[in-house]
C-alpha cells in the first residue's frame, strides 16, 4: 500500500520542554489514523509540524510525497486542516465562512459540493446564521466542511471531539467513516481513549513519545496480563483495598467496576481469599477483555 505520511525521527523542543522525542510513524493512504493521548502529549505540536506550520528540530516528515519543510508550498495545496479550536470567523455566516475558505483554495462551493454534501446538508438550514451563534456540534460540522471544500488528499483533525458531548462525538465519527475513501487519508488526534476503536490504526502517545502503533484490536491483544473486573456494594472501600493490597499489580476505577491485574496467578487466589475474609458484600470478580484505555495505562506505567 502507498504511504501517505512518513514521520522519521521527529523531535521538537520548546525552551526546556521536550514536546516530541524522536517520533517515528507511517500512515497509509486511505487510512483513518488516530493519535491517542492526553493533553500535553505532543499531539498538537506533531500536527503543526505535519501541516508545515512549525519546523521540527530534527527529523523529517513527508506528507503526500512532499517534505513538510522544503516543499511546504506544494503541500499546502493538498492539505485539509482543522485546528484544535473550531477556527471559524465568528462574525461571518455559515455560508460566508464556507465560501471564503473555498475562495482561499481557489475553488467554489459548487465545484466540490458533492464532497461535503452529507455533512453540510445538516447545517444548510442555518446557512445565514453567524458561525459564532452555532452550537458545538454544528460548529464542528461547519469546520469540517471548510477543511474539506478544496478536496484535500490528507485531512488533519486536531482534537475535533474535545469538549463536545457524547452524541456529537458519535455523529462526528460516523461522518468520518463516510468520508473514508482511497483518495483521502484522515489523521485524527483525541484525548478520548474509547475513540481509538473508530480508527483503522492508532498511535498511543504520551509525554512526546509514542508508546505503541497498531490496529486497536492488536493493541488490545498485546495486553500481557489477565484482566479482571471487580465489583461489590461498597466500591469506595473496595477501591482502596484493591489499590493497597500487596497482591495487586494494578487497580483502576473503570466505570461501575475496578479493573484489576494480579501480580501472579497465586496472588490472585490470595487476593480473593483476603477479600472474602473482609466481607465485602456482593463481591464479584470476572475476567474481561481489556480496552485501549487499559492498554494505555499499562504502557504508561512501564
Amino acid at each position: 500500500m502507498n504511504l501517505s505520511v512518513k514521520i522519521s525521527n521527529i523531535s521538537k523542543k520548546f525552551n526546556a520542554t521536550i514536546a516530541l522525542n524522536s517520533i517515528n510513524c507511517e500512515i497509509n493512504k486511505g487510512e483513518i489514523f488516530g493519535f491517542i493521548g492526553p493533553d500535553g502529549a505532543g499531539k498538537t505540536t506533531l500536527f503543526r509540524i505535519l501541516t508545515s506550520l512549525i519546523i521540527p528540530d530534527t527529523g523529517t516528515a513527508i506528507v503526500d510525497g512532499d517534505n513538510v519543510v522544503s516543499d511546504y508550498k506544494l503541500l499546502r495545496n493538498k492539505l485539509g486542516y482543522m485546528p484544535g479550536r473550531f477556527s471559524l470567523y465568528q462574525d461571518l455566516t455559515v455560508e460566508e465562512n464556507l465560501k471564503f475558505f473555498a475562495g482561499v483554495f481557489k475553488t467554489s462551493i459548487k465545484e466540490n459540493y458533492h464532497l461535503i454534501e452529507p455533512i453540510y446538508k445538516q447545517i444548510e438550514p442555518f446557512k445565514n446564521r453567524r458561525a459564532g451563534k452555532l452550537s458545538g456540534g454544528m460548529k464542528q460540522k461547519l469546520a469540517l466542511s471548510c477543511a474539506l471544500i478544496h478536496k484535500p488528499n490528507v485531512l488533519f483533525l486536531d482534537e475535533p471531539t474535545t469538549g463536545v458531548d457524547a452524541v456529537s462525538r458519535k455523529e462526528f465519527w460516523e461522518m468520518l467513516k463516510h468520508l473514508k475513501s482511497n483518495e483521502l487519508t484522515i489523521v485524527v488526534s483525541t484525548p478520548y481513549m474509547d475513540e481509538a476503536a473508530q480508527c483503522d490504526r492508532v498511535a498511543l502517545i504520551q509525554k512526546g513519545e509514542i508508546l505503541d502503533i497498531n490496529t486497536p484490536q492488536n493493541i488490545v491483544n498485546s495486553f500481557s496480563h489477565k484482566l479482571f473486573a471487580l465489583k461489590c456494594d461498597n466500591m469506595y472501600e473496595l477501591n482502596i483495598e484493591s489499590q493497597t493490597n500487596k497482591n495487586t499489580h494494578s487497580a483502576y476505577l473503570f466505570g461501575e467496576t475496578i479493573h484489576w491485574v494480579a501480580k501472579s496467578e497465586e496472588c490472585k487466589m490470595n487476593f480473593i481469599s483476603e477479600i472474602n475474609a473482609k466481607n465485602f458484600k456482593n463481591f464479584e470478580i470476572l475476567q474481561i477483555q481489556p480496552s485501549i484505555e487499559d492498554c494505555f495505562m499499562e504502557l504508561m506505567t512501564k
Binding site: 493521548g37 492526553p38 493533553d39 502529549a41 474535545t162 469538549g163 484525548p191 481513549m193 504520551q206 483502576y252 484505555e293 494505555f296 495505562m297 504508561m300 506505567t301
Partner: peptide
C-alpha cells in the same frame, strides 16, 4: 478531568 491522562 477534561484532557487529563487516564491514570491521573
Amino acid at each position: 478531568t477534561s484532557g487529563v491522562d487516564p491514570i491521573t
